[in-house]
């Protein structure tokens, strides 16, 4: 632990943190404020305190469009994606910590795949999904997001940080490879799990292009698509639009808050010992 900084430096540090937080939080506050009023965001002079706050915008969003349906779709798809990421990435990550012929080739393949943007592979992905008869299904919506290479590497790094002797001990204790992952490695890799949960949830939750491509049936659409549709047929959208944005954001924030402690440890692990 470093020595406690002197008082003026501490003040300066806190002042900086407050200023940065302010810049980060202001747009968020603005969205919230607009959502509970009908003020035009371009209104001049801008007011900080909302005038006559009300919740009618939320009510509108809930009833004017099939919001609950979109919400359900988004939750189901994201849950499948999160489960897929945690399970598949942990398995792949463990495999990559072991020695096997062709390991380097696999690593090189994974790294090079990360260089290809999703947009470039979206047509073949669509064709494959269509061939499998998964268009307009929850599984099809989650399909390309079931595993993420970056998150595989997050697990690989976490597993490599577990002392080799623990795995040896587990092997002598009679655990199969599957049980070593489940009973020894995963309990010691909570930050990596949290990182996987948060990242895959956010990617899946915010995905727009893929659901747009593979859903014909409006009842299978997810929230981002709903938002786009909503935009196209609402007149004066300001307040309701922002209410919608708040409702879309809320679950992500919730997931993040639940997992944030482990998540931050995951991002900074390796920075310090112990």
């Amino acid at each position: 632990m470093a020595a406690r900084p002197s008082r003026p430096r501490l003040l300066l540090r806190h002042a900086t943190l407050v200023a940065v937080s302010f810049v980060m939080l202001l747009p968020f506050y603005w969205v919230m404020k607009t959502a509970v009023t009908n003020e035009n965001i371009y209104a001049y002079p801008p007011g900080i305190v909302p005038r006559d706050p009300h919740l009618f915008n939320f009510v509108d969003v809930w009833y004017l469009i099939p919001f609950p349906r979109y919400l359900l779709n988004s939750i189901v798809v994201s849950a499948i994606a999160v489960a897929g990421n945690v399970v598949l990435n942990a398995m792949a990550g463990y495999a990559l910590t072991r020695q096997f012929p062709g390991r380097r080739a696999v690593l090189a393949l994974f790294l090079s795949c990360m260089l290809i943007p999703f947009q470039a592979t979206i047509i073949p992905a669509y064709l494959i999904t269509a061939k499998m008869g998964l268009l307009n299904t929850y599984f099809g919506l989650a399909f390309p997001m079931l595993s993420t290479i970056i998150c595989i590497f997050v697990f690989k790094a976490a597993f490599e940080a577990v002392p080799r002797s623990l795995i040896d001990a587990a092997r002598l204790d009679g655990l199969s490879e599957w049980r070593i992952i489940l009973r020894v490695l995963l309990p010691l890799s909570k930050p990596a799990i949290a990182t996987n949960v948060i990242l895959s949830f956010i990617w899946s939750w915010n995905n727009f292009l893929w659901p747009l491509l593979i859903t014909r049936d409006p009842t299978m659409q997810t929230l981002p698509l709903g938002l786009a549709r909503f935009l196209s047929y609402m007149e004066d959208t300001t307040g309701a639009l922002y209410a919608f944005a708040v409702l879309v954001l809320a679950p992500s924030v919730l997931v993040f808050l639940m997992a944030q402690k482990e998540f931050i440890r995951g991002l900074t692990s390796g920075a310090t010992k112990g």
């Binding site: 002392p163 092997r171 020894v184």
Partner: peptide, 19 residues
């Protein structure tokens, strides 16, 4: 397999499961 050899090992770093 190691688990079927009926041997037990004490490691230099003890290898206790931290969780």
């Amino acid at each position: 397999d190691p688990k079927d050899r009926d041997v037990a090992m004490v490691f230099q770093d003890y290898a206790l499961y931290p969780h």
